[in-house]
Design a protein around this nucleic acid. Structure first.
Lengths: 205, 205
DNA sequence: GTCTATAACATGATAGAC
DNA sequence: GTCTATCATGTTATAGAC
């Protein structure tokens, strides 16, 4: 055939993608250490050595397969809006975190590279949130907000705690909102006044 | 000597303790997977096979070396007091978590047995806290409180986030208190009125 | 006999040969 | 691209020391 529909390069790319998908899934399920090259290769239907050929090492495969943690821009000037944005991102996470981010979080306590990645990503998010907070303890408050979210996400997605799995994302967000507003430094009166959705326009203007 | 100061059994117990101490330290630092029997044996100055002889398997060693997560009784009837107790336990954690608990947390995302242990321990704590909360969403609120605490602890102890490491436990507790009161279901007015130590009696009445 | 050390076997990661 | 060799590790079995 003079013009084959699938060239060598195409087939190679397709194989790479198959390997990456299998790797992402296994890394998310079992973490970095307990995921074996052989298992990834078997899941992708290729020879184990081929995985090494393509990605150099298990760590190289991890880096390619696991995308960075999603770091939302998250720098609205209004504090109430910031809280809403944090809660919205949590809803997304509770709904379904991308498998790559799951894989990164799964390994963050036992793999140095993953730990460093998460540390940097969370640090950036803390800086971003902290810059939007009015209080003097902005950075610490931001760190507490971000780590609290991390804890809820871990408890839900990674540990599978029943009370969190059974609750809806909206329910979680509703309970968390006043707490986060307090943590963000919103005065109690302002927070107690009205924080329903129709209160939004008033807050953002 | 008719009464030797160190009998065989004594020396064996001393060796066991040396192994357990080394194991706990390595498990806390590197997690279950990345800790090898050989490394533990080397740190304890014994033969690797001896470790197997004593503890049966790597998992047996883990079970012996790593104590359970400390589960405080945590069932005061007063909500404000409950929040204070949670914050106090956090202060302890930030000050210095026992190495065994650190080891358990380090492995909770990548080791099934550790995950199950933590899941049960957190579940018990959630039930305990939930039983003390007045709101109808007690269990979910308790789960959010406990996982938020977990996130802060992880961010501080395991990830070493700078803003948390630089802050004092008292500072963290002070910022967290209003948020936790909101999450615990303390009415905004009561929380805003006065949540200093002398405000406690007013809240419980 | 009990404690300790050595060796054997299985699996996994990686590198080099074909 | 595939296969084999090498090294590290967990585990089991066997032999030696007291």
């Amino acid at each position: 055939m003079s013009t084959p529909s699938t060239s060598r390069a195409d087939r190679r790319r397709a194989t790479e993608v198959r390997i990456l998908v299998s790797a992402r899934e296994l890394f998310a399920q079992k973490g970095f250490e307990r995921t074996t090259i052989r298992a990834v290769a078997a899941a992708a239907g290729v020879d184990p050595a081929l995985v090494m050929q393509y990605f150099g090492s298990k760590r190289g495969l991890f880096g390619q397969a696991v995308q960075a943690l999603p770091v939302p821009p998250a720098a609205p000037s209004d504090t109430g809006e910031l809280v809403d944005q944090l809660l919205a991102s949590l809803c997304l996470k509770l709904g379904g975190l991308p498998e790559g981010a799951l894989a990164m979080m799964r390994s963050m306590l036992t793999d140095q590279a993953a730990a460093e990645h998460v540390r940097v990503a969370l640090g950036r998010q803390i800086d971003s949130v902290g810059a939007a907070l009015p209080a003097e303890d902005a950075e610490l408050r931001a760190a507490l907000l971000v780590t609290a979210l991390l804890g809820v996400t871990v408890g839900h997605q990674l540990l599978g705690l029943a009370p969190l799995r059974e609750a809806s994302a909206e329910q979680v967000a509703a309970l968390l909102r006043p707490a986060f507003q307090a943590l963000a430094g919103v005065p109690e009166r302002a927070a107690a006044t009205d924080w329903r959705s129709d209160g939004g326009p008033a807050a953002e203007g």
